[in-house]
């Protein structure tokens, strides 16, 4: 059974611009959620694309010690990647779009009862079964994001790479989706890696975090140990503190941004 993803000394570049400069992630194991953090353009999406083989470059990526490059592109053990972009103009119903993902771009034209049932079960899990007959173009951004998640989950992956999977969702849906991913991770041994900007959600749902900055991993480990004021100032340019609410749940309180302070000083100087 595949349950450990290893990423070591991975590099990637767009033309002459190096985006990843020897990224090594902590071991990514089944049953865990890892949050990949970092500011905009830190290389989070690039790292995902590099892991699934959409970008070439030096480095080692292995599943249970077996090089990922040895697996065919449509092998079911390959990590399942959900890109960030949800815009789509295809004239397909939600059911068809999820079915298509289940087919992974290949296979017989016939749709078995089991395949149709897998689609319905996934839509039910995300509580969007009422959208099944709607065309993708009629959906809101948040609904499209949920359909994208359904497309990832219907493939029953062992390793799931999600690029900002909750960015278009309202607060309730964000919590529900992350809670569901935590359940799937715990109950089914799913290894989840998610790029996310909401550090409080990372604190609450991730078992470990890895922080990307300048094309390298600058810190990784347990969320409460990694997200220190010094790191937040260095990576995000903000003054922030880790606090706990009355129920003991950790959260980040942001005091100010170094850039905002600089702007305020410049305005004050006239």
């Amino acid at each position: 059974m595949v349950n450990t993803l290893t990423v070591e000394n991975v590099e990637a570049r767009y033309g002459r611009r190096a985006v990843l400069r020897g990224v090594t992630l902590p071991e990514l194991r089944g049953g865990q959620i890892t949050a990949l953090l970092g500011p905009n353009a830190a290389g989070k999406s690039t790292l995902f694309r590099r892991i699934v083989g959409q970008l070439a470059g030096p480095g080692t990526i292995a599943l249970d010690g077996r090089s990922l490059e040895a697996l065919p592109p449509q092998h079911p053990d390959r990590p399942c990647y959900l890109p960030q972009d949800t815009s789509v103009s295809a004239v397909l119903t939600v059911f068809e779009a999820v079915l298509l993902a289940g087919k992974q771009g290949g296979g017989s034209w016939a749709v078995t009862d089991a395949e149709a049932d897998a689609v319905t079960a996934t839509l039910m899990m995300l509580e969007i079964e009422e959208l099944a007959a709607r065309n993708l173009g009629e959906l809101s951004g948040g609904q499209r994001q949920l359909v994208g998640l359904a497309q990832a989950l219907v493939r029953q992956p062992r390793i799931l790479l999600l690029d900002e999977p909750t960015s278009a969702l309202d607060l309730q849906r964000q919590v529900e989706v992350l809670d569901l991913l935590q359940q799937l991770s715990r109950q089914r041994g799913l290894c989840v890696v998610l790029a996310i900007h909401d550090l409080n959600q990372a604190l609450r749902f991730a078992d470990q975090v890895a922080v990307l900055g300048g094309g390298r991993i600058v810190a990784h480990g347990a969320p409460t140990e990694v997200l220190t004021p010094a790191l937040l100032r260095e990576v995000y340019g903000v003054d922030a503190r880790l606090e706990r609410c009355s129920r003991g749940i950790p959260f980040l309180a942001v005091d100010s941004s170094t850039r905002a302070r600089a702007v305020a000083r410049a305005i004050a100087r006239g």
Binding site: P73, P83, A90, L92, A97, K103, Q104, G105, G106
Partner: peptide, 22 residues
């Protein structure tokens, strides 16, 4: 005919189709 699913997936966008292993 053989590429039917892959061609359909292409209409979901290049990145999404590539994420299906196409």
């Amino acid at each position: 005919v053989r590429q039917a699913w892959s061609l359909t997936a292409l209409r979901l966008g290049e990145h999404k189709a590539a994420s299906f292993g196409i």
